[in-house]
Write a protein that binds this DNA or RNA. Structure first.
Lengths: 137, 137
DNA sequence: ATGCACCCTGTAGCAACTACAGGGTCAAGG
DNA sequence: CCTTGACCCTGTAGTTGCTACAGGGTGCAT
């Protein structure tokens, strides 16, 4: 299959596929006589792994390690679990941080009663951290 | 006050302050005889506004608009409210998205019972979206 | 032969910084 | 007087994970 079809079946963008190849996440595929990239099932599956991991928020470097484990079935699974657990913790931390922001923003937005910028509570609050209830980031 | 002191009192990084000046968020300050930047209270307050807004997750362009309103007290406050409300909605959307990821990750991580990578449920799940319960991003 | 969809390489851009390299300034201590 | 150290300057390149060209080639149908 050519790159366009691989893009269609995986939902990835063509440029992204070439980018993954360039940074070594995907192996260089064979080429047709016309120098077109030619992919098989192994490539499709590897790209699906990468896209799925990216959708779950793993970084490229984390995915590199996960793929490496996947390529060496004799290794210990603990590393994969460690990466995933670490990532889960980061996601949880990010959620917690965004919730603080959300509450602070909601408080600020709720103060607007319309009128002129000079009297605006929103702008005033942005200039003055002491008006905040919590110590967001 | 010189740039180092401004950085200390606002918690911003020196390079970031110069960056804000370069992109026009902060006005060019006066210079001392030695060509050092020299800041006053107006700069401090403007930088505090910027840092606070960034901490709340506003983009540089949103902050540019907010600063513009702050510089024109006779304008309507509605624009500030519109920006803040829009941003709040984005934060809420991001939280919702991360919560889906978190649940999916927790499910994947929970499957690991140790052992070899070849049998690893974590790696298997990453390669296979059909094992997911929800349609995360 | 010409239009069109597809493919190629290589480079530049995005956000919002951060990190140098390579230099100047200034006050205190020996 | 000289050096050491802390500070400041400009300008450029790197970060992450793509995305968007520019400028060209290929392959098939009309």
């Amino acid at each position: 299959m050519k790159i366009g079809e691989l893009a269609r079946v995986t939902g990835a963008n063509i440029e992204t596929i070439r980018y993954y190849e360039r940074i070594g996440l995907l192996p260089e595929p064979q080429r047709t006589a016309a120098n077109y990239r030619s992919y098989g099932e192994a490539h499709r599956s590897r790209l699906a792994f990468v896209r799925h991991s990216r959708d779950l928020g793993f970084t490229i470097e984390e995915i590199r390690s996960l793929l490496d484990l996947s390529d060496h079935p004799e290794r210990d699974c603990g590393e994969a679990d460690r990466i995933a657990t670490g990532h889960l913790e980061q996601v949880e931390a990010k959620i917690a941080q965004l919730e603080v922001l959300r509450d602070e923003l909601a408080r600020i937005v709720g103060r607007c009663r319309g009128g002129l910028a000079g009297d605006c509570r929103v702008i005033e609050a942005l200039g003055n951290h002491r008006m905040c209830e919590s110590h967001h980031a």
